[in-house]
């Protein structure tokens, strides 16, 4: 019995004119197969690629739409938050040139990728700041917000990473959250100057890598007494019974949380903008690729039809003649 089955199987294999087709029929649907004896060029691969490019284009288009709607929501927030740090800059100034011993670089980046070069930009700026502030008795530490800057900084300066904060954007960004983060940073890191690095949002396609410096109260006091860039701080009158250092400490803490809030918002805004333009160009690229593939597909199809016609006509004329 078993032998008979085997023999039958063997006969079928022997008779089958196209053994490869028999194997392929189990993988591909039957309708994809050309009838016996037709030697056409297979368009299967091109068709599959067209299908995949089309679905990639759909995905990138959807991502672009999502980024655009998120951008609108976050852009007004970011622009409103600029009013928070501006009074501080008027009062305490933004003085990146002040030399201090303990620098803390707060690098703001995104958690998710596919958003152009904004994360590499902020990492590059942070590294440059690190080099700029390096010195024999100086110490520079990183505080990293977001997954992507961590992945880049872990490579060559993981010894300097002090704190890493992620999953900021699970809820819509708000001040309460950012201030808790700022609080955590202040409590866990010793600093003379905090340098917040982020991408400032200018337009959907333009982001300015920005550094905001927050000096510690002691440094501010020293600077204002030395009469440097912060010399006119003394002309402000302090109300109440507090000493100047107390006021300065409160101010510095609040300034840092405001600057961080603005930085996080601006960076999130830039992220969505960058993602939007990146997705826009990638859907355009997919469209161009699809055009090229369609062209070559149609050409191949046309060529095979022409060949068939020629074969039929020449066969018919051979019969006649």
């Amino acid at each position: 019995m078993a032998m008979a089955v085997l023999r039958r199987e063997g006969r079928r294999f022997a008779i089958s004119p196209n053994p490869i087709a028999a194997v392929r029929s189990s993988i591909f649907p039957a309708e994809e197969q050309a009838p016996l004896g037709v030697r056409s060029i297979s368009t299967q691969i091109v068709r599959n690629r067209m299908k995949s490019v089309k679905s990639i284009q759909k995905i990138t288009k959807a991502m672009k739409m999502v980024a655009a709607s998120k951008l609108r929501a976050i852009q007004s927030k970011a622009e409103n938050s600029r009013g928070l740090w501006q009074p501080f800059t008027a009062l305490l100034g933004d003085t990146p040139s002040v030399e201090v011993k303990k620098d803390v670089i707060v690098t703001i980046s995104s958690d998710k990728g596919l958003c152009g070069g904004i994360n590499s930009t902020s990492v590059k700026i942070s590294k440059a700041l690190n080099k700029l502030n390096a010195g024999p008795d100086k110490e520079t530490k990183y505080v990293i917000l977001g997954e992507k800057a961590k992945a880049q900084l872990i490579r060559d300066s993981k010894k300097d990473i002090e704190l890493n904060i992620t999953e900021l954007q699970k809820n819509p960004l708000n001040y309460a959250q950012v201030s808790v983060i700022a609080d955590d940073i202040l409590k866990n890191v010793e600093y003379d100057a905090l340098r917040v690095v982020f991408n400032k949002f200018q337009s959907v396609v333009a982001f300015l890598p920005t550094v905001s410096t927050v000096l510690s109260p002691e440094v501010v006091e020293k600077e204002s007494e030395a009469g440097g860039k912060l010399g006119d701080l003394d002309s402000y009158e302090v109300e109440g019974g507090e000493t100047k250092s107390e006021i300065l400490q409160n101010l510095t803490e609040f300034q840092f949380s405001c600057v961080l809030f603005n930085g996080v918002l601006e960076n999130a805004c830039s992220e969505q903008g960058a993602r939007m333009s990146a997705m826009d160009s990638s859907s355009r690229n997919a469209g161009e690729m699809l055009d090229r593939l369609t062209l070559s597909y149609n050409r191949t199809r046309q060529a095979s039809i022409t060949t068939e016609l020629i074969e039929i006509i020449s066969g018919a004329s051979a019969l006649e003649g």
């Binding site: 993981k158 999953e167 809820n171 708000n174 309460a176 959250q177």
Partner: peptide, 23 residues
């Protein structure tokens, strides 16, 4: 609804992240 807080913080010591804490 504007005071929701959620983030994950991990301290680093000697180039290695310690166990992250979820706030």
């Amino acid at each position: 609804s504007r005071e929701k807080v959620h983030f994950v913080v991990s301290k680093w010591a000697d180039g290695k992240p310690e166990k992250p804490t979820i706030r």
